Amino acid sequence: MQVLRTECSVVVKPNDDAMHLVRFVGQGGESVDVTLAAGSEAIDDAEMVQKAAAIMVQVAVSLASNAGQEHEPRDVDEPLSRLQRFRFAYSGKGKDFHEIPNVELPSVEAAQAEAIRSARDLYRDVINAGQTPSGWAVRVYDENGNQLFEVSFEDVNATDQHREWPSEP
C-alpha cells in the first residue's frame, strides 16, 4: 500500500486510558491503524508516526520470517533473546529523510533482506510518483551505531531491471 497521508489522534477508552492512534491512509480507501499506549509522556505526531512505522516493519518481518509456523503465545514483556536490534536510515540526495530505530530481527541476513525489500518498495513508489531516486539508499546500523551495509536504489534497479512490477490496483 502506498501511504498517501497519516492521521494521528488520541483515543480515550471507556476506562479512561488514553491511546495514540496512527492511521496510515492509502489509495482506494485502504488504511492501517496502529494503536500505541499513551504512557505518561506526551509525544508529537512525528514521533507517533515513527513508532507506528517501526511496529509495522517489525510485524511484517516477523510474519514473513515465520510464515507457515505455529505461533506460541508469549508474554509481551518477555524479551526475545534471539533477536538483534537494527536501525534503518532512509536517505535521498545525500540527506537522511526517515529513520526507524529499534527494529528487532533474528540476524544480519534478515536485516539485509528487509532493507532490500524496503528499497524495492520505495523505489517503485518513487518512480510511480514521477521522481528520480538517484542517490537514494537504505542504510542499516547495528545497536552500537556501526553501519553494517547500504542498499542503494540504483543497486535495486540494476538487480531488478528485468522484473515487471505489478500494477497498482
Rank of each mutant, 00 (worst) to 15 (best):
Q147P: 06
K13E: 09
V126W: 10
M1C: 03
R5A: 05
D75H: 08
A53D: 06
A111M: 01
V126P: 08
D75L: 10
A46P: 03
D96H: 10
D17K: 08
K51I: 13
S107R: 00
Q161Y: 07
E109D: 10
P14A: 03
A46Q: 05
A42Y: 01
S134V: 00
Q58C: 05
K13T: 02
R124I: 00
E30S: 04
P101M: 09
V103R: 10
S40L: 07
V151A: 05
V49E: 10
A129E: 08
G135R: 02
S118P: 00
E104Y: 14
V59W: 11
A67K: 01
E168I: 15
E7R: 02
H71W: 08
D45S: 11
S107D: 03
V11Q: 07
E143K: 03
E47R: 07
Q27W: 12
S65Q: 09
G26Y: 09
S65E: 11
P79T: 08
D16M: 10
R120E: 04
G94E: 12
D77H: 05
D33Q: 02
L4I: 08
Y90V: 06
E164K: 08
D155N: 06
D155F: 04
V34F: 01
R87M: 14
V25K: 08
F88T: 02
Q2A: 11
R85H: 12
D142S: 09
E109T: 03
I127Y: 01
V156S: 06
R117Y: 09
E154N: 07
H71N: 10
Q112E: 13
D125I: 12
M48K: 02
N66T: 15
E41S: 13
G145H: 00
R82E: 05
P79Q: 12
W165E: 01
L21G: 06
E150F: 03
Q50P: 04
S152I: 00
V76N: 15
N144V: 09
H98E: 15
S118E: 14
K51V: 05
Y141E: 07
N157C: 13
G145C: 10
P73D: 08
L63H: 13
Q50Y: 03
N66S: 13
A119T: 07
S31A: 02
E7A: 01
S9Q: 07
S81N: 05
D17H: 11
E109C: 02
A67I: 08
R82N: 05
S81Y: 11
A42T: 09
A111I: 01
P14I: 01
R85M: 15
V108Q: 01
D16E: 10
T132E: 04
E99M: 15
Q131W: 12
A67G: 12
D96K: 02
M1L: 07
L148G: 11
R74M: 13
V126A: 09
F86S: 11
A119N: 02
E99S: 14
L63F: 15
